[in-house]
Design a binder for these strands. Structure first.
Lengths: 202, 202
DNA sequence: AACTACATCAATACTATTTCTTGACCCAGT
DNA sequence: ACTGGGTCAAGAAATAGTATTGATGTAGTT
């Protein structure tokens, strides 16, 4: 059971992430230590289930999760993948305190550090520096979201796929093609044919 | 998605269980119906994670779960299996509202009916008959726990195994040997040898 | 000193589940 | 009619999860 290894999370990756944006003093580090809680999600386990209010802001320490919407026809559309050193939450639901329409679940056993809504507010009050940190962090998310949107409305499936394996090279051979297809908005079969075509080229 | 089928749980097994102890009237049935919520846990998913307060009292409708403790060396020790028509919760954590040291997770896709701490208190108040029902139910659990303890301190691994497949015949060929070994407190290898020996006998 | 009741480690074998690919066929828009 | 897709079904391939076996070790009997 190597679950043990994964469980004794170090908070370091998160501190590192913050330090990288703005240096923290001792008290601030302590706050992070106190307010973020480690949690292990097993493969396939829900981190957020549609209908629930998203009450946690999640930082991925290791592993990989996906965020998706299930449409009326029952098809699932992946909005975002997140792996090491990324953030993921349904920000709308988190802030408005409204039920989410999205799901988040684990593609691998995944360790996250999570802060609850209340604790995040408390963090902002106790250390206003985090207002800035979280602003930057959300700006980053925003930018990559915008990029993804643009990609999506402007390119063919093949182009999107190529661009995906470029931007997400670390994920490309880590997550199933099915998931990638769902992210790209095509069927797994069609993705398979695209890949086949690619390998024939080289 | 045959998840649908499993999701539309009938509350009947639970009502049946209660009726079997003490007949319920209409209002009491309605209370059960209102206060117990169905929930599906997928294989490997946590029902309770150590560190969290156990807030649900679980009745297994179908499937199978295990409750275990992970020791300092990282070894996991299975305290209890539970399948159809059994109850499982960390009763200590549930009542004292303290973080649990135990984990519960699903060995199969498992449907449970669960009642929250608050709702259980409310149930006791609205229908005191449930005080008795839950007393009986916990007495039953207590007895089987005691039996297991006795078994454990008084028998060899082989005897324990034999006794296990007798008492849990319905589980013996349903859950992995590894899990059974962990329940018996021996290594999977040794269990394998014991089994080998048994089959040679017959 | 030998025997019993276990443990550990490493390798192998086996099984089940998940993922990927392919073929056959369809359809809508240039 | 060609291209960029989609659907369904079947098989193949890959991976993960389980079980077994051999070699070796150890603590506590006898």
């Amino acid at each position: 059971m190597n679950e043990e290894k994964i469980i004794q999370t170090q908070i370091e990756p998160l501190l590192g992430y913050f330090q990288n944006l703005i240096p923290l003093n001792k008290e601030e580090k302590q706050l992070v230590f106190d307010l973020f809680k480690p949690r292990l999600y097993r493969k396939r386990q829900y981190v957020l289930q549609s209908g629930d209010v998203c009450n946690q802001f999640n930082f991925i320490v290791r592993g990989c999760v996906r965020m998706y919407k299930v449409d009326d026809k029952g098809n699932t559309h992946i909005i975002q993948f997140a792996s090491e050193n990324w953030w993921l939450s349904d920000i709308g639901s988190f802030h408005e305190r409204t039920p989410s329409e999205l799901n988040i679940d684990a593609l691998e056993d995944t360790m996250v550090l999570q802060i609850s809504h209340d604790n995040l507010l408390s963090l902002y009050i106790q250390a206003p520096k985090f207002d800035r940190i979280f602003r930057v962090l959300i700006e980053n998310s925003f930018v990559s979201l915008q990029k993804r949107l643009l990609q999506n409305i402007s390119s063919s499936a093949e182009e999107r796929y190529l661009s995906f394996i470029e931007s997400y090279s670390h994920l490309a051979n880590r997550i199933p093609q099915t998931q990638i297809a769902s992210f790209l908005g095509i069927t797994p079969e069609f993705l398979s044919r695209l890949r086949n075509k690619q390998t024939k080229k080289s």
